[in-house]
């Protein structure tokens, strides 16, 4: 028990980070499941973080209400910017959402209410371990339900062939907006949770670097199932701790991982279909022996 207490004292922050990164990776997973390559989720995380932090700091809202605010604010922004930008596809959408992310970061940097470059200090430490566990579990459950419904099938159909999906009676625009907005909600909640355990937030946490980090986690883990993003988030959160000596090259290592994964494991580390195939091959080989 004492050993666990020691471990927890040292590593609880790390465990919290794993949970929050998993939530972020799942938020991008949802957006990607509809074929939308978005780099806006770091900005949505920032909007959620600042909204929730301002609500508890200045207005003394109770934590659940602040979390809700941290979910609603990015959703509203997503609905507004989604309508014009989601007409774009592929790399053009990536560029537009990247620009949106930078605009958001610069706005936070220059506004009075957000504390400018100094950020917000003294955010009450309200996030506990079970908050993260419960929210992650609820998000995972919700996404699993979506996958097994008309909504999830529509997202996947749009990702695989937009024209065919449209001619199957799917309203492509409204589904894209739904995937984008729900992704923003998850990223916003992750930001709100994060703000209330790090005590301090600043604009630089929600820039381009973070957007690429979230993308790397999701792609590394794999987008064919919900396990992939969680696995990717876990690995990329723990890896820098295990390889402290590489600290200065963290970004380079992340970039390298992204390149290697895209080249050699395009479906990510966790690909249920590949596992099934491997299992089948093994069985076939065993069965072939006399």
């Amino acid at each position: 028990m004492a050993a666990f207490a020691d471990f927890w004292a040292t590593y609880s922050t790390l465990v919290y980070s794993v949970g929050i990164h998993a939530l972020l990776a799942l938020s991008l997973w949802l957006t990607l499941s509809c074929g939308l390559l978005s780099l806006a989720n770091a900005a949505f995380m920032g909007i959620g973080a600042y909204t929730a932090a301002l609500l508890t700091l200045n207005l003394h809202w109770p934590f659940p209400a602040a979390l809700l605010g941290g979910a609603v604010a990015p959703a509203v922004v997503a609905l507004i910017i989604g309508a014009p930008t989601l007409r774009l596809s592929g790399v053009y959408l990536a560029m537009a959402t990247l620009a949106f992310g930078e605009v958001t970061r610069i706005l936070i940097l220059n506004l009075q209410i957000t504390g400018g470059p100094e950020g917000l200090n003294g955010i009450p430490l309200l996030t506990t371990g079970w908050h993260i566990v419960v929210i992650l579990a609820v998000a995972g459950y919700g996404l699993a339900r979506i996958r097994r419904s008309r909504l999830g099938r529509a997202f996947e159909a749009i990702r695989e062939d937009e024209v065919a999906a449209r001619l199957m009676g799917i309203n492509v625009e409204s589904h894209k907006l739904a995937a984008f907005t729900l992704g923003a909600v998850l990223a916003g909640v992750a930001g709100a949770l994060n703000a209330h355990f790090t005590f301090f937030i600043s604009p630089r946490e929600y820039g381009f670097e973070n957007a690429v980090d979230i993308l790397t986690m999701t792609i590394l883990g794999g987008t064919t199932s919900l396990i992939g993003p969680v696995l990717g988030a876990t690995i990329l959160t723990l890896l820098p701790e295990l390889m402290r000596f590489l600290h200065a090259y963290r970004l380079a290592v992340n970039g390298l991982i992204l390149v290697v994964v895209v080249l050699f494991l395009p479906t990510g580390l966790w690909d249920a279909r590949r596992f099934r195939q491997l299992l089948k091959n093994r069985r076939a080989r065993k069965g072939g022996q006399p």
Binding site: S149, R150, R153, A154, A157, A165, M168, G169, I170
Partner: peptide, 10 residues
């Protein structure tokens, strides 16, 4: 089942 999208109105 994608083709049945609009017929599933839950």
């Amino acid at each position: 089942m994608v083709g049945r999208h609009h017929l599933l109105n839950y």
